[in-house]
Design a protein around this nucleic acid. Structure first.
Lengths: 224, 224
DNA sequence: AGAAGTTTGTGAACGCGAGAACAAACTCGT
DNA sequence: ACGAGTTTGTTCTCGCGTTCACAAACTTCT
């Protein structure tokens, strides 16, 4: 039997650049839903998402054909289709390791819960932090990682430790069965094939801004 | 007079993809310096930075010719050259607006200070937060923005407010003379030409991981 | 019903970035 | 001094992503 490619076939590969933009579209659509909008054109949605309309339409075309020519997109329907494609119609259990300043902020961040993620455990190696409750979740010893991952079927881990600890944490996460890691520590993680790592480095973004800022100043000097 | 292009000419344009990796190289080099390494090959540095060596060499070639064939790179020298190119040999004053959980974490983040950024002010619209000191800096009213930007010659602003307030904050920042904005709010900012915006969205990264995680599961189902 | 106006979905062209591969330039040993 | 070994800087090729431009398909008006 030859498998047919339908628009709901999850095996279709969506370009990575498009995947990275889908959450932005999702957010824009949610805003439109909250504002009571029922229909929108690619031009309107593109503006709300900060991209141009051709790119938006091409991105959406990878998911299927959810618009109507001459009319636009049904906001609610498109929102659901994108949420389903990303996989945030289900609830993803998440563990956060490292409950310092950043870990606190992440644990309290309401944007996780509202977008399909549930923080099921906060872990820290420092015993002084244990029993403390953050956002209604008690901080537990790092040693509990394996048991929690297994019991709650956790696939996604967040690392908010100092850089020196991050590789050890990642190794333990992978051994425990976690297959997706979001790394906030300023470090390069080595993980086996099949494990996805994404990193967020607060200071790298500032440095990129500084680079452009420096060029603005020197460009001004040339004029002066 | 025809202006000659030298290796120290800041007007040379470095590809955006390269600019985004320079801070990673800088971090790796700092680690090597701390470990007492005086020389390294492109292969070693590339591994420390998590890229392949051909890409690293190509990136470095945009800055100039700082290596020695048959030997490698002088770690300290290359570190300085990259820092100078990015612009983090000087100190950049930064204001942070929105001192909630995330703002606290950012204000306390030691990685800013150690990488050439100095938090000169913390601002919040909520009077209950004023006078509170975070990381040795007192939280002040948002209305003080203009005066601080002018007095301290601030070019870079960080937005850590809720999404609804972010556009207003950005508008005020731009009016006050800020030309680079790092936005942590889940929103799309509209700014005039000449102002750079970079955004960090904590939940978008998780959603990208969820997408790939979902595909891993469905791939496993096909096998089973 | 048909013409005019809108908006999507997509084919095609273009530009940028990644990676392979190699010549140039250095060190080291003899 | 010279050959063998090492490592950089750069050229070339390929693939991906962005953008343009337009046909197809819908709505609305007459």
């Amino acid at each position: 039997m030859v498998s047919a490619r339908t628009s709901s076939d999850p095996a279709r590969d969506i370009p990575e650049a498009t995947v990275a933009r889908l959450p932005v579209y999702l957010r824009a659509l949610t805003t439109l839903v909250d504002a009571g909008t029922s229909t929108c054109s690619s031009e309107e949605l593109a503006q709300a998402a900060g991209v141009n309309s051709a790119k938006l339409r091409k991105d959406l075309s990878y998911l299927g054909s959810y618009g109507t020519r001459g009319v636009g997109y049904d906001v609610e329907y498109l929102r659901y289709q994108i949420a389903r494609e990303i996989g945030v119609t289900q609830d993803w259990p998440v563990v956060i390791v490292g409950i310092g300043n950043l870990g606190h902020a992440l644990a309290n961040y309401s944007g996780f819960r509202s977008r399909g993620f549930r923080v099921v455990a906060l872990l820290d190696a420092d015993p002084r932090r244990h029993q403390e409750a953050v956002a209604g979740v008690v901080v537990r010893p790092f040693a509990d990682l394996e048991r929690i991952v297994e019991e709650q079927d956790v696939a996604i881990g967040v690392i908010a430790t100092p850089a020196v600890a991050s590789q050890d944490v990642a190794d333990r996460m992978v051994a425990a069965g976690i297959t997706s890691i979001l790394n906030f520590a300023p470090s390069v993680l080595a993980v086996p094939d099949g494990v996805d790592v994404r990193k967020v480095d607060l200071s790298i973004e500032l440095q990129i801004l500084a680079y452009h800022e420096q060029r603005k100043s020197s460009a001004a000097e040339v004029i002066a």
